[in-house]
Computed example of a mutant assay.
Amino acid sequence: MKSDSGSSTDEYLSRLFNPANREDVITEDFEIIEARLAPEEKNRLEHCWKLTKDLYYGNFPGYRSCNTEYHDYNHTCDVFGASARLCDGMLAEGRDLPPELYADICIAAMLHDAGYIQEASDTEGTGAKYTRTHVKRSMEFSRRHREDFHLSEERCDRICLMIAATDLATPIPDIPFEDESTLYAAKVLATGDLLGQMADRTYLEKLLFLYYEFSEAGFPGYETEFDMLRKTLGFYEMTKKRLSETLNGAADLARSHFKARYGLDRNLYIESIERQIDYLGSIMEDSSVNFRKKLKRMDLETISRTHRESVHA
C-alpha cells in the first residue's frame, strides 16, 4: 500500500484491518520489516513464517492443524503485522536496540500462541482446553523446536521471555529479562498482541469464537455469548490501562509508523479499536434487537455448529 494524500483515513482503516485483504497486508508487513533487516535475518524470518504457517495448517510433523477459531492463523497474522509495524515505528523514532531484537519480536509474534495447537496424539476436544496454559505451552514448543526454526539457544530463551509477557496473568516485573532492551521488546510484542486482535474489523464477531474457547476451557462467568460481549467493555478499560502503564505506551509507536510511512499523523490501530468498542457499546444499550443481527461482518449462523463439529472431530 503506497501513501496517497487523497486517500481517506477510512480507506486505510478498511484496507489494513479487513480480513479479506489479509494476504496482501501480510505481504506488506513483511516488506516493511524486512527492509530494516540484514539478509540473514530476513531469511530467518521467512523460514520461521513458513514453519508457522505449516503449524497452523496441519503440515508440521507431529501436530494437528489449528482448531481454535479465535486464536487461529488469522490472529497470528494480525499480531505479526502489528508487531512488525511497531518495530518500524521504533526504527522511525531512532530507538537504539540490537538489530536482531526486531527479528526476535516478529518471531515471538509468530510463536506466541503455538500452545493452542494439539499434538497429533491429542484428539480430545480442541486446543481451547489449553487456554489457561497456552503461553507456557507456546514457550515449550519454541524450545522443543528451536533448531527447526534456526534459533540459537540464547535467542530462543529471549523469544520465550517475550512470549511470557503476552500472558495477562503474569506480572511483567516477575519475568527475568536479561536487560532493558529485551524488556522493552517484550512490551512491544505484548502491545502488538492486543492491537492486532482488537483492530480486526471482525473483532466483535470473533468474540463469539472466543466465547466457545473460554467455555471449553471452563472459564467461569461466561455462560452465554452475550456475556462475552458485555465483559469486553470492561476488558477494553483494562486494556487501555495495560497499554498506557504496564506496556509504557508502546502503542504510540504505531502512530510513528503511520506518520513516517504514509504521512498520517494518526494511530490507526487505536482508531479502529475505538470504533469497534463504540459500536459494541451501542449494542449493549439497545436490547430491542438480538445482538447477533447487529454483527454483520461474518456469517454467524454456522459458529455454534462449526464449534460442536470441531470439538467432537
Score class of each variant (00 low, 15 high):
11 E>G: 12
231 K>S: 11
38 A>G: 10
184 Y>M: 14
266 R>H: 14
58 G>K: 02
303 I>S: 00
231 K>D: 14
127 G>V: 01
220 P>Y: 09
274 E>M: 06
46 E>T: 08
44 R>Y: 00
55 L>N: 00
191 T>Q: 05
198 M>T: 13
247 L>N: 05
19 P>R: 05
140 E>S: 06
133 T>R: 07
299 D>L: 04
153 E>G: 14
293 K>D: 14
241 K>N: 14
14 S>H: 14
170 T>Y: 02
264 L>I: 12
262 Y>G: 09
260 A>F: 09
53 K>M: 03
236 Y>N: 14
204 L>P: 08
313 A>Y: 08
65 S>E: 13
143 R>Y: 00
217 A>Q: 03
177 F>N: 05
164 A>P: 00
68 T>D: 05
296 K>L: 15
10 D>I: 08
181 S>L: 01
74 N>W: 05
110 M>N: 02
180 E>Y: 06
52 T>Q: 01
4 D>F: 13
157 D>S: 08
139 M>F: 01
141 F>G: 03
131 T>H: 14
245 E>M: 12
241 K>P: 08
10 D>G: 07
268 L>G: 10
246 T>K: 15
119 E>G: 12
73 Y>H: 10
74 N>M: 08
185 A>K: 02
94 G>Y: 11
129 K>P: 00
26 I>T: 08
155 R>I: 06
294 K>W: 01
122 D>C: 04
89 G>A: 11
289 V>W: 07
233 L>Q: 15
23 E>H: 12
267 N>T: 13
136 K>H: 07
265 D>F: 10
97 L>R: 05
258 F>K: 05
311 V>M: 13
195 L>C: 10
174 D>W: 05
56 Y>Q: 00
221 G>V: 09
140 E>R: 07
294 K>H: 10
258 F>A: 11
35 A>W: 03
313 A>I: 04
300 L>S: 02
172 I>P: 03
78 D>V: 02
283 I>A: 10
106 C>Y: 07
245 E>C: 09
287 S>K: 15
84 A>K: 10
269 Y>C: 07
35 A>H: 11
35 A>T: 11
